[in-house]
């Protein structure tokens, strides 16, 4: 197990290295200059660019960049919050993004699981058809459309919750109320995905031979479903768990802008727009890190639920 984890960690480090290298070249190939004030004299512009090594060939810049990176020196922001270390900016924006994502996940999973189980148990009934319609609707409508609709109807028309995120720092009731819409907007599509996936899996396990055997040994349909079918149908759920985290994270970039959430999502947009390279790279690096860690965690937890993986069974 330990060997497996350390192998995975090494693979992760290599992946991260590739990601940041790619990021570096991608970000630096964006057109435009950080100095975009046309009134600035040309020699000042050149001096500013020289300060950030922007006048050197890209490969040289890359070597500087890697050197900084390996010493965990992520640099300072150039434009979004000049001279503030990027690390501090991210630290500042992170909590609200994490709060939003975790709440969305906490909301998505149980509801998606319950809907999926209900649809499978009530297969081909009105409940199933109703849920199916919801699934199709929420999978096909993008989250920002849902966000805009929610904002317009629930916040603007009905005035039930604030239109934008409350600026309060602590997680108070008003703050929470203003977070409801972004959470919903982030969750609906994911709930639909979980529902659809779990329904399919559970229908299959419900028809499996071991369900028949479980019933012939005297378990009621209910007991057999609870003890055998549902747990087995959860295993493949781990497959969509990682994409789900990614999709909530990336959905948050747009949703945060719609609801003016001062989080990582809006930060990354600002950084890209301002050509604030160190900040952009740091934010993207951070996203990648979260992604890789969640893949690792999910892979490890796979083993916890499925003995065939834990014990390295061949078949």
């Amino acid at each position: 197990m330990l060997r497996y984890i350390s192998q995975r960690l090494i693979a992760m480090a290599i992946t991260l290295f590739l990601i940041i290298s790619l990021l570096f070249f991608l970000v630096h190939s964006m057109p435009g200059s950080i100095v975009n004030d046309p009134m600035l004299p040309i020699d000042i512009k050149e001096r500013i660019e020289a300060k950030y090594h922007l006048d050197k060939p890209l490969v040289v810049q890359y070597v500087y960049f890697l050197g900084d990176f390996l010493t965990f020196n992520f640099g300072d922001s150039i434009k979004v919050q000049p001279k503030v270390p990027v690390f501090d900016i991210i630290k500042d924006k992170l909590p609200i993004t994490i709060q939003l994502n975790i709440l969305a996940l906490l909301f998505t999973l149980p509801i998606g699981v319950i809907c999926g189980i209900m649809a499978a148990l009530k297969k081909n009934t009105a409940t199933d058809h109703g849920l199916n319609m919801m699934v199709v609707l929420f999978i096909s409508v993008p989250s920002f459309v849902i966000a805009a609709l929610l904002q317009y109807i629930v916040a603007f028309k009905w005035e039930l919750v604030p239109i934008l995120l409350s600026a309060e720092q602590a997680l108070t009731w008003t703050k929470f109320k203003s977070m409801i819409l972004p959470i919903l907007a982030l969750s609906f599509g994911e709930i639909a995905i979980v529902t659809r996936y779990l329904r399919a899996e559970l229908c299959e396990t419900l028809n499996s031979d071991y369900m028949l055997l479980a019933r012939t040994k005297g378990l009621s349909q209910m007991q057999a479903t609870l003890r055998h079918a549902i747990r087995n149908s959860f295993i493949p759920l781990a497959n969509i768990f990682i994409p789900m985290i990614f999709s909530i994270l990336s959905g948050a970039i747009v949703i945060e802008n719609i609801f003016s959430v001062p989080g990582l999502g809006s930060l990354s947009i600002n950084a890209i727009n301002a050509l604030d390279h160190p900040l952009t790279i740091a934010v993207m690096f951070f996203y990648s890190l979260i992604a890789l860690i969640s893949i690792l965690v999910v892979d490890l937890s796979y083993g916890i639920i499925d003995p065939r993986i834990r014990m390295g069974g061949k078949k």
Partner: peptide, 27 residues
Amino acid sequence: ERQFTQIRGSKISMIFQDPMSSLNPIM
């Protein structure tokens, strides 16, 4: 269904064709 659970296993039992799939793989 309730009456059947009383006799299944204890009075009438059944085994199936494919032993590979008749057992719950994760128990």
